[in-house]
Design a protein around this nucleic acid. Structure first.
Length: 879
RNA sequence: GGGCGCAUAGCUCAGCGGUAGAGCGCUGCUCUUACAAAGCAGAUGUCGGCGGUUCGAAACCGUCUGUGCCCACCA
């Protein structure tokens, strides 16, 4: 616990809060409170500060996006991390921003144009891009306002957009550097093409789905020269320029080097031998369409085959003949039909499960297409990205997900970075009239002569995202921000974008920043699911708008629920019932603080020494110290679920239930002891609020300012564990007291007594060491002093304490006897087991001493239980 | 086709070598003056099946079954 003198002190005038309602109303508090935090500059980082930096960059949401639970989840965790670090005295920067989201945004604006019957071509490039900026101005960035609702403590003064001037310069700078280093090149290859978006896609923008296809077997050639091939894409046969067989395949050896007639055309195509062909699959012969299949393209390269393109960018057949103008899928059945008429379908088509690639953006079936594109040569970059994790400079949490990262960086293909779009960073390459190719840096003047033109394509949207950790800090300028806040500390994001984003930031960060990785820790989260473990996606009806929940239950409740579910790397289930439970927790914190204020909890003066405190005081301070230490350890390990759970139970069970109840009799009695307890109550509440603040910032700040009179818990100091308050004796004593109370309450409940009904009782606590707690015990267990006519009808004995109760003959002896007998049997069984274990020589020889000690403890407890239960049974009046 | 993960109370999940846990839900009694969005008490599991290692296994190994995810240019 921190030095009390450093905190604002409230002397006990809580009249304002005493009139507050018994229920916390987040809707009234959260909005204004957030704006106050921002106005006071709590989230604005100072690059000139002497404090050590702590930096997190936000995974930039798409400018087109709205806040969904996945964002809310990750933002809660990032916010909790930065809030704690801020309290710990770090100069924290949580940098917000958005991604221009190339295809997604362009699609959005094109849709808007389509509604008035226009296409982007009607506007022309310049006007269209202008239109996109207008769209952004008007509709983009909805998510930013929603982040305020959530309480995200981001530095709004540093908000960035990937298409900002500065970030665009960063893009151009690194492009040129890569180009000059020979790591960016232009090449004609088979790429993934979306016939709807009309652009190239990188490999990871293609989603594979198992789909039933139809594998048809077609006979090429005639008579002795005939050869049967199988395909799922019959329409591509129009572009076949060879048939390939395995070199060792005796069945076709006689055909290699000869040509066969290609059906439906007037062409003859050669049969070539290629190692790539699997003689076991199908007929062992493959049709080769170099312009429409990546494998076939490779075969074509090896054998010098022509690349015959038969489809245009829309997937429409372009070869003259009966199929001209047909869509690729229409062409497929038309081709099969024509072949069947010629009797060339040798096997009926049969269903065949195979993976079909779809555009991750619009879900259209991707078409492999031969085209000239720009590529990043990833091999050296990926090797560095892998190395930084392998040698421990960058750590992945949870470690289990390292494998996924490595499998990607170790096997990465070159990255196709050009997109045939208009919205994005234009490729800074100019072509001259005489075949010149010039790559320009941000400060280079564009060539002006006759015949010069810039490459029309833009860059993959992830190209600029990959620069995010340093482009947002001002790179390539050597800014104060860059100096202070790079490398950043933690990257917290979903494991679904390890490849899209994480690995690429690693590659570019290490490359551009002299081998300095962009962050030291990668904390990976799972996906948000509904309460039945089903994936929550926009297309599912189970998708929930987190704003609705925030409206109803408060942002804190949503945040606490999400944090409670955050086991490292694991998916997070969330349902309304759980949000409601979290709301109840916030309300509990609210009411516990109200209780403290009403009872004069204070932070004035030093915390009394242990010898001036009651056992409950010493106990709760001991527990508090332990919980502070535990919370720190869990934060440092990104164990949000565990730390939330731990704080939940400490606050609710130990502080709000037990400690508050145990303190009541002391507080009511008054005097110096009550003063000390008021001081401890204030201390414990205040520290607990600080511990909870990073996860539930709104309610804790509201209560903390009321309790302390201070400015804001946002800028309060993070608690430190006071090991000097550890008190094992007090913990044992209170545990004992708890078991006595629980036993009495259990007995009362079993006997059907109303919780509030007072029962005359005689206590003998002399054997238990609990004599000091008689008042508390009587108050909590509703035991009144024994009168003159006291007549014990039940005797309880727990932990050395004996309690005689006068239930005036209403006791259900049979029920009690039954219960005691059951407990006795259990205790006897326990004793037998413990004895057996302690008689086991192998166990004694091999088990850890602590394990043996534990069994001794079990044995002792069983023995004590047997004595106690036997006595209670004997004390029971006969029926 | 490769790789990874998961199967524990009705639901969602912790635990990962020494007596089965949490939250929600459920049952009962209570408006006991911080809180009924609460309090107290309680019930509920051959820890997926089968083998093995061990004095001891929910936990480690093997195997089977079910299930989820990632990667993938075999037509």
């Amino acid at each position: 616990m921190t030095d009390t003198n450093q905190r604002p002190v409230n002397d006990g005038d809580h009249s304002a809060l005493e009139t507050l309602p018994t229920q916390y109303a987040p809707a009234e508090v959260e909005g204004p409170l957030y704006e106050r935090w921002v106005e006071r500059g709590y989230f604005t980082a100072d690059a000139k500060s002497d404090k050590p930096p702590y930096t997190i960059v936000i995974p930039p949401p798409n400018v087109t996006g709205a806040l969904h639970l996945g964002h809310a989840f990750q933002h809660t965790l990032m916010d909790a991390l930065t809030r704690r670090k801020r309290m710990q005295g770090f100069e924290t920067l949580w940098l917000p921003g958005m991604d221009h989201a190339g295809i997604a945004t362009q699609n959005k604006v094109e849709q808007q144009l389509a509604e008035v019957g226009k296409s982007r071509h009607d506007l022309g490039r310049e006007a269209f891009v202008e239109k996109v900026w207008e769209w952004k101005q008007q509709y983009g960035g909805q998510i930013l306002g929603q982040m305020r609702r959530l309480g995200d403590g981001v530095d709004w003064s540093r908000e960035r957009f990937t298409m900002d001037e500065g970030l665009s310069q960063a893009v151009q700078t690194i492009f040129k550097k890569l180009f000059d280093d020979g790591l960016i090149y232009r090449a004609e290859r088979i790429i993934n093409w979306c016939p709807r978006c009309l652009t190239a896609l990188s490999d990871i923008e293609v989603e594979h789905e198992e789909r039933p296809g139809e594998l048809v077997s077609i006979r090429y050639g005639d008579g002795d020269d005939s050869i049967v091939v199988a395909t799922t894409r019959a329409e591509t046969m129009l572009g076949d320029t060879a048939i390939a067989v395995h070199p060792d395949d005796a069945r076709y050896a006689h055909l290699v080097g000869r040509t066969v007639a290609l059906p439906l055309t007037d062409r003859r195509i050669p049969v070539v031998a290629d190692e790539h062909v699997d003689p076991e699959f199908g007929t062992g012969a493959v049709k080769v369409t170099p312009a429409h299949d990546p494998n076939d393209f490779a075969i074509g390269q090896r054998h010098g085959l022509p690349n015959l393109t038969v489809m245009d960018e829309h997937g429409v057949i372009t070869v003259h003949g009966p199929f001209l103008g047909l869509d690729r899928f229409e062409a497929r059945s038309a081709v099969v039909g024509a072949l069947r008429e010629q009797g060339r379908i040798v096997a009926e088509k049969r269903p065949y499960m195979h993976a079909v690639g779809h555009c991750s953006r619009c879900h259209t079936v991707v078409e492999p297409r031969l085209s000239l594109q720009w590529w990043v040569k990833v091999e050296p970059l990926a090797a560095a990205a892998g190395g930084a994790v392998r040698d421990g400079r960058v750590q992945i949490h949870p470690k289990e997900l390292e494998g996924r990262y490595f499998s990607w960086v170790d096997n990465m293909h070159d990255w196709c970075i050009s997109r045939q779009l208009w919205w994005g960073h234009r490729i800074p390459v100019w072509y001259g009239p005489d075949g010149e190719v010039v790559c320009l840096g941000p400060n280079d003047p564009a060539p002006t002569g006759e015949g010069w033109h810039q490459d029309p394509d833009v860059l993959d949207t992830w190209f600029s995202s990959a620069l995010w950790p340093f482009s947002t800090l001002g790179w390539p300028e050597q800014t104060a921000d860059l100096e202070k806040f790079y490398p950043t500390d933690v990257l917290l994001t979903g494991h679904d974008i390890i490849f899209f984003w994480v690995a690429r930031m690693m590659m570019f960060g290490l490359y551009a920043m002299d081998g300095q990785a962009p962050f030291h820790t990668i904390a990976l989260t799972g996906l948000v699911r509904d309460q039945f473990g089903k994936k929550m996606s926009k297309s599912n009806p189970n998708a929930v708008d987190p704003i609705d929940w925030m409206d109803e239950f408060g942002a804190d409740a949503v945040r606490f629920t999400l944090a409670s579910g955050a086991n490292p790397g694991a998916d997070v289930p969330i349902g309304e019932d759980w949000v409601k439970a979290s709301r109840n927790f916030c309300n509990k914190v609210w009411n516990a603080t109200r209780f403290a204020l009403m009872n004069g909890a204070t932070l004035a003066g030093p915390l009394p020494a242990a010898d001036q405190l009651t056992a409950p005081d010493r106990w709760i301070l001991s527990r508090l110290a332990a919980v502070v230490a535990e919370t720190d350890a869990l934060y440092d390990d990104y164990q949000f679920a565990k730390l939330s759970d731990s704080l939940y139970h400490f606050a609710w069970d130990e502080v709000f239930d037990w400690y508050v109840e145990l303190s009541k009799s002391t507080l009511i009695a008054g005097g110096p002891q009550a003063d000390a307890t008021r001081r401890v109550l204030g201390e414990v509440l205040e520290v607990t609020l600080r511990l909870l603040h990073p996860v539930i910032p709104f309610v804790t700040d509201t209560l903390w300012t009321a309790l302390t009179g201070g400015e804001s818990v946002v800028v309060a100091e993070w608690p430190t564990a006071d090991a000097g308050r550890a008190d094992a004796a007090a913990e044992r004593e209170i545990a004992q007291l708890q078991s006595v109370i629980t036993e009495i309450r259990r007995f009362r409940a079993d006997q059907g007594l109303a919780p509030g009904q007072k029962v005359p009782a005689q206590l003998d606590l002399s054997g238990s060491g609990l004599t000091a707690h008689e008042a508390a015990l009587r108050s909590i267990a509703k035991l009144q002093p024994a009168g003159a006519d006291f007549h014990a009808t039940a005797n309880l004995a727990v932990a050395g304490a004996t309690v005689a109760l006068d239930l005036s003959g209403t006791i259900d002896v049979d029920a009690e006897r039954k219960r005691l007998a059951k407990d006795l049997a259990a205790a006897e069984k326990e004793l037998t087991q413990a004895q057996a274990k302690l008689a086991n020589e192998a166990f004694l020889a091999k088990a850890a001493p602590a394990a043996v000690e534990k069994i001794h403890g079990r044995q002792a407890k069983a023995e004590a239980d047997i004595v106690r239960l036997t006595a209670q049974l004997a004390a029971l009046p006969s029926a």
